[in-house]
Write a protein that binds this DNA or RNA. Structure first.
Lengths: 191, 191
DNA sequence: GCTTGCTATGCAACTCGTTGCATAGCAGGA
DNA sequence: TCCTGCTATGCAACGAGTTGCATAGCAAGC
Protein backbone atom coordinates (compact mmCIF):
# COMPACT_ATOMS: atom_id res chain seq x y z
CA UNK A 1 0.00 0.00 0.00
CA UNK A 2 2.37 2.68 1.09
CA UNK A 3 5.81 1.17 0.88
CA UNK A 4 6.30 3.65 -1.95
CA UNK A 5 5.50 6.51 0.40
CA UNK A 6 7.74 5.25 3.15
CA UNK A 7 10.54 5.14 0.57
CA UNK A 8 9.74 8.66 -0.60
CA UNK A 9 9.98 9.97 2.96
CA UNK A 10 13.25 8.16 3.56
CA UNK A 11 14.80 9.38 0.30
CA UNK A 12 13.66 12.94 0.94
CA UNK A 13 15.33 12.78 4.32
CA UNK A 14 18.48 11.49 2.59
CA UNK A 15 19.07 10.02 -0.90
CA UNK A 16 20.34 6.44 -0.79
CA UNK A 17 20.95 3.26 -2.77
CA UNK A 18 18.57 0.32 -2.62
CA UNK A 19 20.92 -1.46 -0.30
CA UNK A 20 21.20 1.49 2.07
CA UNK A 21 17.42 1.81 2.03
CA UNK A 22 17.07 -1.85 2.95
CA UNK A 23 19.32 -1.26 5.95
CA UNK A 24 17.25 1.75 6.99
CA UNK A 25 14.22 -0.54 6.87
CA UNK A 26 16.03 -2.73 9.37
CA UNK A 27 16.54 0.28 11.62
CA UNK A 28 14.83 3.62 11.92
CA UNK A 29 12.11 3.29 9.28
CA UNK A 30 11.69 -0.36 10.25
CA UNK A 31 10.27 0.77 13.57
CA UNK A 32 7.01 1.51 11.79
CA UNK A 33 7.30 -0.01 8.33
CA UNK A 34 9.03 -3.28 7.50
CA UNK A 35 10.26 -4.30 4.06
CA UNK A 36 12.76 -6.75 2.62
CA UNK A 37 15.36 -5.84 0.03
CA UNK A 38 13.35 -7.76 -2.57
CA UNK A 39 10.31 -5.59 -2.08
CA UNK A 40 12.43 -2.46 -2.07
CA UNK A 41 14.26 -3.18 -5.34
CA UNK A 42 11.02 -4.08 -7.08
CA UNK A 43 9.23 -0.96 -5.88
CA UNK A 44 12.22 1.26 -6.73
CA UNK A 45 11.98 0.12 -10.35
CA UNK A 46 8.29 0.81 -10.49
CA UNK A 47 8.81 4.23 -8.93
CA UNK A 48 11.51 5.01 -11.49
CA UNK A 49 9.22 4.07 -14.37
CA UNK A 50 6.52 6.28 -12.82
CA UNK A 51 9.07 9.14 -12.73
CA UNK A 52 8.92 9.43 -8.96
CA UNK A 53 12.68 8.82 -8.62
CA UNK A 54 15.89 9.39 -10.53
CA UNK A 55 19.05 7.35 -10.14
CA UNK A 56 22.66 8.46 -10.20
CA UNK A 57 25.11 5.64 -10.92
CA UNK A 58 28.09 5.76 -8.59
CA UNK A 59 31.18 3.63 -9.17
CA UNK A 60 32.98 2.41 -6.09
CA UNK A 61 36.51 1.11 -5.64
CA UNK A 62 36.53 -2.61 -5.06
CA UNK A 63 32.77 -2.77 -4.71
CA UNK A 64 29.90 -3.09 -7.19
CA UNK A 65 28.45 0.11 -8.62
CA UNK A 66 25.42 1.45 -6.82
CA UNK A 67 22.52 3.64 -7.80
CA UNK A 68 21.78 6.60 -5.57
CA UNK A 69 18.07 7.34 -5.72
CA UNK A 70 16.57 10.82 -5.37
CA UNK A 71 12.96 11.97 -5.36
CA UNK A 72 11.75 13.93 -8.40
CA UNK A 73 9.23 16.79 -8.18
CA UNK A 74 6.63 14.31 -9.46
CA UNK A 75 7.47 11.97 -6.60
CA UNK A 76 7.27 14.75 -4.10
CA UNK A 77 3.83 15.74 -5.40
CA UNK A 78 2.71 12.13 -5.11
CA UNK A 79 3.88 12.08 -1.49
CA UNK A 80 2.06 15.30 -0.64
CA UNK A 81 -1.15 14.02 -2.24
CA UNK A 82 -0.88 10.84 -0.17
CA UNK A 83 -0.12 12.77 3.03
CA UNK A 84 -3.38 14.65 2.64
CA UNK A 85 -5.49 11.54 2.01
CA UNK A 86 -7.28 9.89 4.94
CA UNK A 87 -5.31 7.48 7.11
CA UNK A 88 -6.41 3.89 6.52
CA UNK A 89 -7.34 1.81 9.56
CA UNK A 90 -4.48 -0.48 10.53
CA UNK A 91 -4.63 -4.23 9.94
CA UNK A 92 -3.75 -5.69 13.34
CA UNK A 93 -2.01 -9.09 13.39
CA UNK A 94 -0.82 -10.04 16.82
CA UNK A 95 0.26 -13.66 16.83
CA UNK A 96 1.07 -13.75 20.53
CA UNK A 97 -2.48 -12.75 21.45
CA UNK A 98 -3.81 -15.69 19.42
CA UNK A 99 -1.43 -18.03 21.22
CA UNK A 100 -2.46 -16.71 24.62
CA UNK A 101 -6.13 -17.35 23.94
CA UNK A 102 -5.18 -20.68 22.41
CA UNK A 103 -3.36 -21.67 25.61
CA UNK A 104 -6.78 -22.48 27.08
CA UNK A 105 -6.75 -25.54 24.77
CA UNK A 106 -3.29 -26.78 25.72
CA UNK A 107 -2.22 -28.46 28.95
CA UNK A 108 -0.05 -27.23 31.80
CA UNK A 109 3.12 -28.34 30.03
CA UNK A 110 2.15 -26.35 26.96
CA UNK A 111 1.40 -23.30 29.06
CA UNK A 112 4.76 -23.65 30.78
CA UNK A 113 6.40 -23.62 27.34
CA UNK A 114 4.40 -20.51 26.50
CA UNK A 115 5.60 -18.81 29.68
CA UNK A 116 9.19 -19.45 28.58
CA UNK A 117 8.41 -18.11 25.12
CA UNK A 118 6.76 -14.98 26.51
CA UNK A 119 9.82 -14.40 28.67
CA UNK A 120 12.05 -14.61 25.59
CA UNK A 121 9.70 -12.30 23.71
CA UNK A 122 9.77 -9.88 26.62
CA UNK A 123 13.56 -9.83 26.60
CA UNK A 124 13.49 -8.93 22.88
CA UNK A 125 11.17 -6.02 23.54
CA UNK A 126 13.24 -4.85 26.51
CA UNK A 127 16.27 -4.79 24.19
CA UNK A 128 14.29 -2.86 21.58
CA UNK A 129 13.26 -0.30 24.18
CA UNK A 130 16.85 0.08 25.35
CA UNK A 131 17.90 0.66 21.75
CA UNK A 132 15.21 3.31 21.26
CA UNK A 133 16.21 5.11 24.45
CA UNK A 134 19.88 5.06 23.42
CA UNK A 135 18.91 6.43 20.02
CA UNK A 136 16.86 9.15 21.65
CA UNK A 137 19.77 10.27 23.83
CA UNK A 138 22.08 10.19 20.80
CA UNK A 139 19.86 11.88 18.20
CA UNK A 140 17.68 14.20 20.27
CA UNK A 141 19.80 15.42 23.18
CA UNK A 142 18.27 18.90 23.18
CA UNK A 143 14.45 18.87 22.90
CA UNK A 144 14.25 22.65 22.59
CA UNK A 145 16.40 23.74 19.67
CA UNK A 146 15.59 21.87 16.47
CA UNK A 147 13.78 21.97 13.16
CA UNK A 148 10.51 20.47 11.98
CA UNK A 149 12.11 17.32 10.64
CA UNK A 150 13.82 16.48 13.93
CA UNK A 151 10.70 17.30 15.94
CA UNK A 152 8.63 14.93 13.80
CA UNK A 153 11.23 12.16 13.84
CA UNK A 154 11.39 12.53 17.61
CA UNK A 155 7.64 12.28 18.17
CA UNK A 156 7.54 9.10 16.08
CA UNK A 157 10.39 7.68 18.14
CA UNK A 158 8.52 8.59 21.33
CA UNK A 159 5.64 6.58 19.92
CA UNK A 160 7.93 3.58 19.57
CA UNK A 161 9.15 4.06 23.14
CA UNK A 162 5.60 4.34 24.48
CA UNK A 163 4.64 1.21 22.55
CA UNK A 164 7.52 -0.84 23.91
CA UNK A 165 6.84 0.29 27.48
CA UNK A 166 3.18 -0.67 27.09
CA UNK A 167 4.14 -4.06 25.68
CA UNK A 168 6.52 -4.79 28.55
CA UNK A 169 3.89 -3.92 31.16
CA UNK A 170 1.31 -6.05 29.38
CA UNK A 171 3.69 -9.01 29.08
CA UNK A 172 4.19 -8.88 32.85
CA UNK A 173 0.41 -9.02 33.18
CA UNK A 174 0.36 -11.99 30.77
CA UNK A 175 3.07 -13.82 32.73
CA UNK A 176 1.21 -13.30 36.01
CA UNK A 177 -1.98 -14.57 34.44
CA UNK A 178 -0.35 -17.66 32.91
CA UNK A 179 1.40 -18.52 36.16
CA UNK A 180 -1.80 -18.19 38.16
CA UNK A 181 -3.37 -20.88 35.96
CA UNK A 182 -0.81 -23.55 36.86
CA UNK A 183 0.74 -22.57 40.20
CA UNK A 184 2.60 -25.87 40.70
CA UNK A 185 4.24 -25.89 37.27
CA UNK A 186 5.27 -22.27 37.44
CA UNK A 187 6.67 -22.70 40.93
CA UNK A 188 8.79 -25.51 39.54
CA UNK A 189 9.86 -23.39 36.56
CA UNK A 190 10.50 -20.31 38.72
CA UNK A 191 11.56 -21.45 42.19
CA UNK B 1 0.62 -17.34 8.33
CA UNK B 2 -1.61 -18.07 11.26
CA UNK B 3 -5.10 -17.20 10.16
CA UNK B 4 -5.66 -20.95 10.35
CA UNK B 5 -4.65 -20.94 13.99
CA UNK B 6 -6.79 -17.95 14.86
CA UNK B 7 -9.72 -19.82 13.30
CA UNK B 8 -8.89 -22.96 15.27
CA UNK B 9 -8.90 -21.00 18.53
CA UNK B 10 -12.18 -19.31 17.69
CA UNK B 11 -13.87 -22.59 16.69
CA UNK B 12 -12.59 -24.35 19.79
CA UNK B 13 -14.08 -21.56 21.87
CA UNK B 14 -17.35 -22.03 19.97
CA UNK B 15 -18.16 -23.83 16.66
CA UNK B 16 -19.51 -21.46 14.02
CA UNK B 17 -20.35 -20.98 10.35
CA UNK B 18 -18.04 -19.10 8.02
CA UNK B 19 -20.31 -16.11 8.21
CA UNK B 20 -20.37 -16.10 12.01
CA UNK B 21 -16.58 -16.42 12.02
CA UNK B 22 -16.30 -13.43 9.74
CA UNK B 23 -18.35 -11.40 12.19
CA UNK B 24 -16.15 -12.53 15.07
CA UNK B 25 -13.21 -11.27 13.04
CA UNK B 26 -14.94 -7.91 13.00
CA UNK B 27 -15.24 -8.01 16.78
CA UNK B 28 -13.40 -9.92 19.48
CA UNK B 29 -10.85 -11.83 17.41
CA UNK B 30 -10.49 -8.81 15.15
CA UNK B 31 -8.86 -6.96 18.01
CA UNK B 32 -5.67 -8.87 17.29
CA UNK B 33 -6.22 -10.61 13.96
CA UNK B 34 -8.08 -9.17 10.99
CA UNK B 35 -9.52 -11.17 8.12
CA UNK B 36 -12.19 -10.70 5.45
CA UNK B 37 -14.88 -13.23 4.71
CA UNK B 38 -13.07 -14.11 1.48
CA UNK B 39 -9.94 -15.16 3.29
CA UNK B 40 -11.97 -17.06 5.85
CA UNK B 41 -13.99 -19.10 3.34
CA UNK B 42 -10.87 -19.97 1.37
CA UNK B 43 -8.94 -21.04 4.45
CA UNK B 44 -11.90 -23.03 5.82
CA UNK B 45 -11.90 -25.12 2.65
CA UNK B 46 -8.19 -25.78 2.91
CA UNK B 47 -8.53 -26.69 6.57
CA UNK B 48 -11.36 -29.10 5.71
CA UNK B 49 -9.25 -30.81 3.06
CA UNK B 50 -6.40 -31.06 5.61
CA UNK B 51 -8.86 -32.73 8.02
CA UNK B 52 -8.51 -29.97 10.61
CA UNK B 53 -12.23 -29.23 10.55
CA UNK B 54 -15.54 -31.00 9.97
CA UNK B 55 -18.73 -29.34 8.79
CA UNK B 56 -22.29 -29.99 9.80
CA UNK B 57 -24.87 -28.71 7.30
CA UNK B 58 -27.71 -26.91 9.02
CA UNK B 59 -30.91 -25.99 7.18
CA UNK B 60 -32.56 -22.76 8.24
CA UNK B 61 -36.09 -21.50 7.71
CA UNK B 62 -36.19 -18.71 5.19
CA UNK B 63 -32.39 -18.42 5.11
CA UNK B 64 -29.69 -20.22 3.14
CA UNK B 65 -28.22 -23.36 4.65
CA UNK B 66 -25.09 -22.89 6.65
CA UNK B 67 -22.17 -25.10 7.57
CA UNK B 68 -21.23 -25.24 11.23
CA UNK B 69 -17.52 -25.92 11.51
CA UNK B 70 -15.91 -27.86 14.36
CA UNK B 71 -12.26 -28.66 15.06
CA UNK B 72 -11.16 -32.28 14.61
CA UNK B 73 -8.56 -33.97 16.84
CA UNK B 74 -6.10 -33.47 13.96
CA UNK B 75 -6.85 -29.77 13.96
CA UNK B 76 -6.43 -29.56 17.68
CA UNK B 77 -3.04 -31.28 17.45
CA UNK B 78 -2.01 -28.82 14.77
CA UNK B 79 -2.99 -25.94 17.06
CA UNK B 80 -1.05 -27.34 19.99
CA UNK B 81 2.03 -27.86 17.82
CA UNK B 82 1.81 -24.26 16.67
CA UNK B 83 1.26 -22.96 20.20
CA UNK B 84 4.55 -24.53 21.23
CA UNK B 85 6.52 -23.13 18.30
CA UNK B 86 8.43 -19.86 18.75
CA UNK B 87 6.52 -16.62 18.31
CA UNK B 88 7.49 -14.88 15.08
CA UNK B 89 8.54 -11.22 15.26
CA UNK B 90 5.67 -8.97 14.23
CA UNK B 91 5.69 -7.10 10.94
CA UNK B 92 4.95 -3.52 11.93
CA UNK B 93 3.13 -1.32 9.41
CA UNK B 94 2.11 1.99 10.87
CA UNK B 95 0.94 4.30 8.12
CA UNK B 96 0.33 7.27 10.41
CA UNK B 97 3.95 7.27 11.56
CA UNK B 98 5.08 7.47 7.92
CA UNK B 99 2.75 10.41 7.37
CA UNK B 100 4.00 12.20 10.44
CA UNK B 101 7.61 11.96 9.33
CA UNK B 102 6.49 12.89 5.82
CA UNK B 103 4.83 16.05 7.15
CA UNK B 104 8.31 17.61 7.23
CA UNK B 105 8.07 17.73 3.41
CA UNK B 106 4.64 19.33 3.23
CA UNK B 107 3.71 22.95 3.98
CA UNK B 108 1.73 24.48 6.85
CA UNK B 109 -1.58 23.86 5.06
CA UNK B 110 -0.72 20.19 4.63
CA UNK B 111 0.22 19.89 8.27
CA UNK B 112 -3.04 21.56 9.27
CA UNK B 113 -4.87 18.90 7.25
CA UNK B 114 -2.84 16.24 9.03
CA UNK B 115 -3.82 17.70 12.41
CA UNK B 116 -7.48 17.34 11.43
CA UNK B 117 -6.86 13.79 10.28
CA UNK B 118 -5.05 12.87 13.49
CA UNK B 119 -7.97 14.27 15.47
CA UNK B 120 -10.37 12.07 13.53
CA UNK B 121 -8.07 9.09 14.01
CA UNK B 122 -7.90 9.87 17.72
CA UNK B 123 -11.69 9.91 17.96
CA UNK B 124 -11.80 6.44 16.35
CA UNK B 125 -9.37 5.08 18.90
CA UNK B 126 -11.23 6.72 21.78
CA UNK B 127 -14.38 4.97 20.57
CA UNK B 128 -12.51 1.66 20.33
CA UNK B 129 -11.27 2.07 23.90
CA UNK B 130 -14.76 2.86 25.12
CA UNK B 131 -16.01 -0.30 23.40
CA UNK B 132 -13.28 -2.40 25.02
CA UNK B 133 -14.06 -1.00 28.47
CA UNK B 134 -17.76 -1.67 28.01
CA UNK B 135 -16.95 -5.22 26.89
CA UNK B 136 -14.73 -5.70 29.92
CA UNK B 137 -17.48 -4.60 32.33
CA UNK B 138 -19.96 -6.87 30.52
CA UNK B 139 -17.85 -10.01 30.10
CA UNK B 140 -15.49 -9.89 33.07
CA UNK B 141 -17.40 -8.33 35.97
CA UNK B 142 -15.76 -10.54 38.58
CA UNK B 143 -11.99 -10.83 38.18
CA UNK B 144 -11.67 -13.47 40.91
CA UNK B 145 -13.97 -16.38 40.07
CA UNK B 146 -13.39 -17.71 36.56
CA UNK B 147 -11.80 -20.43 34.48
CA UNK B 148 -8.64 -20.50 32.38
CA UNK B 149 -10.40 -19.52 29.18
CA UNK B 150 -11.94 -16.39 30.67
CA UNK B 151 -8.69 -15.41 32.38
CA UNK B 152 -6.81 -15.67 29.08
CA UNK B 153 -9.48 -13.83 27.11
CA UNK B 154 -9.41 -11.10 29.73
CA UNK B 155 -5.65 -10.62 29.68
CA UNK B 156 -5.76 -10.28 25.89
CA UNK B 157 -8.53 -7.69 26.23
CA UNK B 158 -6.46 -5.83 28.82
CA UNK B 159 -3.72 -5.74 26.19
CA UNK B 160 -6.11 -4.08 23.77
CA UNK B 161 -7.11 -1.57 26.42
CA UNK B 162 -3.47 -0.79 27.26
CA UNK B 163 -2.72 -0.39 23.56
CA UNK B 164 -5.58 2.05 22.98
CA UNK B 165 -4.66 4.12 26.03
CA UNK B 166 -1.06 4.30 24.85
CA UNK B 167 -2.19 5.34 21.36
CA UNK B 168 -4.41 8.10 22.71
CA UNK B 169 -1.62 9.51 24.87
CA UNK B 170 0.80 9.38 21.93
CA UNK B 171 -1.68 11.06 19.58
CA UNK B 172 -1.95 13.94 22.06
CA UNK B 173 1.83 14.18 21.94
CA UNK B 174 1.66 14.15 18.12
CA UNK B 175 -0.97 16.89 18.06
CA UNK B 176 1.07 19.08 20.40
CA UNK B 177 4.14 18.54 18.23
CA UNK B 178 2.35 19.33 14.98
CA UNK B 179 0.76 22.45 16.43
CA UNK B 180 4.08 23.72 17.74
CA UNK B 181 5.45 23.63 14.19
CA UNK B 182 2.88 26.09 12.81
CA UNK B 183 1.53 28.11 15.73
CA UNK B 184 -0.38 30.63 13.56
CA UNK B 185 -2.16 28.01 11.48
CA UNK B 186 -3.11 25.90 14.45
CA UNK B 187 -4.33 28.93 16.37
CA UNK B 188 -6.58 29.67 13.40
CA UNK B 189 -7.74 26.05 13.25
CA UNK B 190 -8.21 25.82 17.03
CA UNK B 191 -9.11 29.25 18.41
C1' DG C 1 43.49 -22.27 1.90
C1' DC C 2 38.75 -22.15 3.44
C1' DT C 3 34.84 -20.31 5.32
C1' DT C 4 32.16 -16.64 6.72
C1' DG C 5 30.30 -12.24 6.03
C1' DC C 6 29.62 -7.74 3.83
C1' DT C 7 28.35 -4.71 -0.17
C1' DA C 8 25.16 -4.55 -4.05
C1' DT C 9 21.56 -6.09 -7.11
C1' DG C 10 18.33 -9.06 -9.06
C1' DC C 11 15.09 -13.30 -10.95
C1' DA C 12 11.48 -16.74 -10.21
C1' DA C 13 8.01 -18.99 -7.83
C1' DC C 14 4.96 -18.97 -4.47
C1' DT C 15 1.61 -17.68 -0.82
C1' DC C 16 -1.19 -14.25 1.33
C1' DG C 17 -4.45 -10.63 1.21
C1' DT C 18 -7.67 -7.34 -1.22
C1' DT C 19 -11.34 -5.85 -4.32
C1' DG C 20 -15.11 -6.32 -7.16
C1' DC C 21 -18.67 -8.91 -8.31
C1' DA C 22 -22.50 -12.54 -8.11
C1' DT C 23 -26.33 -15.26 -6.19
C1' DA C 24 -30.65 -15.52 -3.40
C1' DG C 25 -34.39 -14.98 -0.21
C1' DC C 26 -36.33 -12.27 3.35
C1' DA C 27 -37.33 -8.06 6.39
C1' DG C 28 -38.10 -3.31 7.15
C1' DG C 29 -38.60 1.41 6.05
C1' DA C 30 -39.61 5.61 2.79
C1' DT D 1 -42.90 -0.24 -4.73
C1' DC D 2 -38.39 0.31 -4.46
C1' DC D 3 -34.29 0.48 -1.97
C1' DT D 4 -31.42 -0.80 1.60
C1' DG D 5 -29.53 -4.20 4.46
C1' DC D 6 -28.92 -8.76 6.51
C1' DT D 7 -27.82 -13.79 6.23
C1' DA D 8 -24.84 -16.98 3.71
C1' DT D 9 -21.49 -18.46 0.38
C1' DG D 10 -18.47 -18.17 -3.35
C1' DC D 11 -15.49 -17.03 -8.03
C1' DA D 12 -11.95 -14.41 -10.43
C1' DA D 13 -8.40 -11.22 -10.87
C1' DC D 14 -5.11 -8.63 -9.01
C1' DG D 15 -1.60 -6.73 -5.92
C1' DA D 16 1.42 -7.28 -1.89
C1' DG D 17 4.73 -9.83 0.51
C1' DT D 18 7.89 -13.97 1.30
C1' DT D 19 11.42 -17.39 0.28
C1' DG D 20 14.99 -19.41 -2.10
C1' DC D 21 18.45 -18.75 -5.00
C1' DA D 22 22.18 -16.42 -7.90
C1' DT D 23 26.09 -13.37 -9.02
C1' DA D 24 30.51 -11.19 -7.76
C1' DG D 25 34.46 -9.12 -5.57
C1' DC D 26 36.69 -8.12 -1.37
C1' DA D 27 38.05 -8.46 3.72
C1' DA D 28 38.84 -10.84 7.99
C1' DG D 29 39.60 -14.70 10.78
C1' DC D 30 40.91 -19.67 11.62
Amino acid sequence: MSLEHAILVSLLEQPASGYELARRFDRSIGRFWTATHQQIYRVLKRMESDDWLTAEEVGQEGLPDKKIWSVTPTGRSALVAWLRAPVQPEAVRHELAVKIRGAAFDDAAGRAALVAEVERYRADHAATLAGYLAGERRDFPDPAARDARAALQHVVLRGGIAYERMVLAWLDDVLDTLRDLDPATSRKANP
